[in-house]
């Protein structure tokens, strides 16, 4: 495992409240280049909110986010909240963070290949021919080249998610964020998506994955973070967590998941 002095993604003291509910109580995380970080936790632990704070789909009330040394500039409003002060910078940073959503979120009025080339063409301003060529290669990689002219409505869930991954890859992101990518899929389709994700991990992509898939967390990722009630309850290598079972809460979590998968 390569550890470099400068982290690819550095997130510190993220706090977020919705009204009275204090969902995130100070989360800090560093991901280095090539890290595959699995974020586990029960529902309501705040893991999706945390991920969405990283690319500012939710705005954290406190805390800072840095991508490869560049920190997102924030300014404080009169009521104490903070908001990003430089929209252009936010857009640029987002373009270097790829996100894959639980509900795929493909653009329904565009075909598969049009979905994939949209980002590089409109945001990265590359030529259409270039984008199409690269898109076709990416679609081959995820196994959907021959459905490139289909529309999302014509694809199964697993196929749509693989297109979504290709779409995120088309931006050549420095860090990829996966928000429960297989939670909305039928069990038999989960495998094809996990296979693609495994391939990306083996390539050396930096990935943050919020997931319920214990197998992925255990065998593919190189770091596991367990969140509970807006805190990080336990973190470490898969071995440290799954064999060591360092905290009571984590033990219960693993036990309940094993019970479920045994059913």
């Amino acid at each position: 495992m390569n550890t470099q002095p400068k982290a690819a993604l550095s997130v510190s003291n993220i706090q977020k409240s919705y009204g009275q509910a204090h969902v995130l109580k100070g989360i800090s995380l560093n991901a280095h280049k090539g890290d595959v970080v699995s974020i586990l936790g029960a529902s309501g632990s705040g893991k999706s909110t945390f991920l969405r704070c990283i690319n500012l789909l939710e705005t954290p009330d406190e805390g800072s986010i840095s991508l490869n040394g560049e920190t997102i500039e924030m300014k404080r409003l009169r009521d104490g909240r903070q908001v990003p002060s430089n929209t252009r910078q936010v857009e640029q940073i987002r373009s270097r963070l790829g996100m894959v959503f639980q509900s795929f979120n493909l653009w329904s009025h565009r075909s598969v290949i049009e979905n994939v080339i949209e980002g590089p063409m409109r945001v990265l301003k590359r030529s259409r021919a270039e984008c199409v060529e690269e898109a076709e290669q990416l679609l081959q990689k995820v196994g959907l080249y021959d459905r490139r002219d289909y529309y999302p409505a014509h694809l199964s869930g697993g196929q749509q998610q693989r297109v979504a991954i290709a779409r995120a890859l088309a931006m050549n992101p420095q860090v990829m964020l996966f928000d429960e990518p297989t939670s909305a899929l039928d069990p038999e389709l989960v495998g094809e998506v996990l296979k693609v994700m495994r391939g990306l991990a083996e390539e050396g992509r930096t990935m943050l994955v919020v997931t319920h898939e214990m197998g992925f967390a255990r065998h593919v990722s190189n770091r596991v973070v367990f969140m509970q009630d807006g805190h990080i309850d336990a973190q470490g290598t898969p071995a440290e967590l799954f064999e060591g079972l360092p905290t009571e809460r984590f033990r219960q979590f693993v036990a309940s998941h094993q019970l479920r998968s045994a059913e």
């Binding site: 940073i93 987002r94 790829g98 959503f101 509900s103 795929f104 329904s108 949209e118 779409r167 931006m171």
Partner: peptide, 10 residues
């Protein structure tokens, strides 16, 4: 979600 996907891409 489709709007968020656009935002997430920058």
């Amino acid at each position: 979600g489709q709007i968020e996907a656009g935002q997430a891409i920058g």
